[in-house]
């Protein structure tokens, strides 16, 4: 396996966090993985993003100009990265915030109302976790259990109270993709 995903959204949507969740889960499964935050000029323009590269060999490059997969949590991210995805790639889109129609026929789209799902589940701020659930269902690079295990290690102490909500949000996102 040699894959990568660029995760993009507003600052505060937890983009970097779910990137690290994914990266840690991959690490725990013995995969090679890199996580790189948006950097340089990439930081301008209202979106935050990070890239996770995953390989069962060595990860060659942590910077990806043309990602294979994209999670777009907001409209500017959708606009910015839709055209950059490699043909055959996948875009997992937060349809609660992205109202544009897809413009490409050579990539796969999964539209999931992430903000709405999070809201209905009572976890307003967990659209990011919903998106991660939707992503690993669409592209099974890693199991849901692996992500949950990482959540258990990252959400401890004062944050432990958020654990159940996170797991539920992950489940909801996972189930939202058929």
């Amino acid at each position: 396996m040699d894959s990568n995903v660029l995760i993009a959204g507003f600052g505060g949507q937890g983009v970097l966090f779910i990137g690290q969740l994914l990266a840690r889960a991959c690490m725990n499964e013995g995969l090679s993985v890199t996580w790189t935050p948006s950097y340089g000029a990439e930081m301008r323009g209202g979106t935050v993003n990070c890239t996770v590269c995953i390989s069962d060999d060595e990860v060659a490059c942590a910077y990806v100009a043309e990602p294979k997969n994209v999670i777009a949590l907001n409209a500017p991210s959708f606009a910015k990265f839709e055209s950059k995805i490699k043909p055959g790639g996948t875009m997992v889109v937060n349809s609660s915030l992205v109202k544009s129609a897809p413009s490409r026929t050579d990539i796969n789209y999964k539209f999931v109302p992430m903000t709405e799902i999070a809201h209905n589940a009572g976890h307003e701020k967990m659209a990011n976790i919903v998106s991660l659930g939707a992503f690993i269902k669409t592209l099974p690079v890693i199991s849901k259990d692996s992500i949950v295990n990482v959540m258990r290690t990252m959400l401890t102490g004062k944050k432990a109270i958020m654990l159940e909500g996170n797991i539920q949000a992950l489940d909801e996102g996972f189930e939202a993709v058929k």
Binding site: Q20, T34, W35, T36, A62, Y63
Partner: peptide, 10 residues
């Protein structure tokens, strides 16, 4: 370099 400095890896 900047790539190594900024990226996370196990």
């Amino acid at each position: 370099d900047g790539m190594l400095g900024q990226m996370m890896e196990p």
